[in-house]
Nucleic acid binder design. Structure first.
Lengths: 206, 206
DNA sequence: TGCATCTGACAACGGTTCATGTCAATAGAA
DNA sequence: TTCTATTGACATGAACCGTTGTCAGATGCA
């Protein structure tokens, strides 16, 4: 029984796990870029690997299949996006309406920076698979809850407990974004936020 | 030069063009059904042909490729849907609000009858191809115009000329439907219409 | 330096789908 | 009845993609 040679040795300054994690990140970034450029259904594993500067062998080291990468990159995008929203809310001064306005401004600014990603991750991925749909629905619900919570005077979700109406408001906010993007950002962002606010304020009516 | 034998002869009581048109209709119906059951991206040409009771040879007689069938069936669905809406508006009594309510009721009733088709043709087809996206955007705009026109006192589109807001309202109405469908129609339809109405009435505000 | 590990380029396999082609059987006209 | 247009079942070819496998060369350790 020979003393096993050094497995898991460092390579280019990183441990095996660090390298693995690094490659996974490369795939996530590449996926977001490639999906944005070509759409998910036209994006191939090979294209993602090329964009990541890695080969298929490493792809299947980090993801068991193509769909798993889609879900992972979707969740990464949403984590980033919600982080921006929470930050904007926390930094905003004023009442619920002003905080909601700050949140929407952050939302549309984030989308402005990544127009193609917006399309892909907001609508195109719908129907790819049950797992993807589930992730999408969860993030839509989370967005709706965030809007309702922000608009509630006491910060709970008391504004508009009707989930149907919340879903409608979220859909409205998203379609405002899609229309804006499709028009080539022809309106100034404060007008976009204004239109979205009018939709969101429905949650306080009645 | 022989006198050419009878080309374009009748067959089972129909002329060549009638048979062709009939087969095309069969494909459209089959496509709507199959897309609804499996989603467009999982639906194969073969499956559509089987559902239509025809073979691939006739598929390529009526459509030059799979995407062309998608666009054609999408437009057939939308033509039917808008027809229902116009009918409901025309038959409704009362002012703009009552007519809008009648229209939305017709909308959700139509979707209730075809839940899978609704998903496919409202969101899933997004991003399939530029031509499909264009058809989808056109129908969204048409829907927004119809809502705005119905809600305008004089029947013109004077209510909310902001296209951004119109797009938002349409997105809201659609997402209300998607949420409703996903919940298994757990709310009575008048509540669904009520939620959608609150969104639509944003067009009259300000 | 010698050797095992790690990496990257690429081949190969299996499966699927679109699109076209073949051909015998059927229906209609003369 | 006989011949031809039409139909339907099926075969075929080409292309693409996901996934796994191969292998030489680069890198780090002793």
């Amino acid at each position: 029984m020979p003393s096993s040679p050094v497995a898991n040795r460092r390579y280019r300054g990183s441990s095996a796990e660090e390298r693995r994690a690094q490659r996974r990140e490369q795939f996530l970034e590449a996926a977001i870029q490639v999906y944005g450029e070509q759409g998910y259904r036209n994006a191939t594993v090979k294209a993602v690997c090329e964009a990541a500067g890695l080969t298929e062998r490493y792809f299947y080291e980090s993801f068991s299949n193509s769909e798993e990468l889609l879900v992972a990159s979707f969740q990464a995008v949403m984590r980033f996006l919600f982080g921006e929203l929470e930050k904007a809310i926390a930094e905003a001064s004023g009442g619920p309406v002003e905080r909601a306005r700050a949140m929407l401004t952050a939302y549309y600014e984030a989308l402005q920076g990544h127009p193609q990603s917006a399309r892909v991750f907001l609508v195109e991925i719908s129907g790819v698979s049950p797992a993807v749909d589930q992730a999408l629905e969860a993030s839509l619900r989370e967005f709706g809850d965030l809007i309702a919570r922000t608009l509630s005077p006491r910060g709970d979700g008391s504004a508009a407990s009707d989930p149907l109406l919340r879903a409608g408001v979220v859909g409205g906010v998203i379609h405002v974004a899609l229309k804006w993007i499709a028009s080539g950002y022809s309106q100034p962002i404060h007008e976009v936020v204004g239109a979205a606010m009018r939709l969101c304020l429905v949650l306080r009516g009645r």
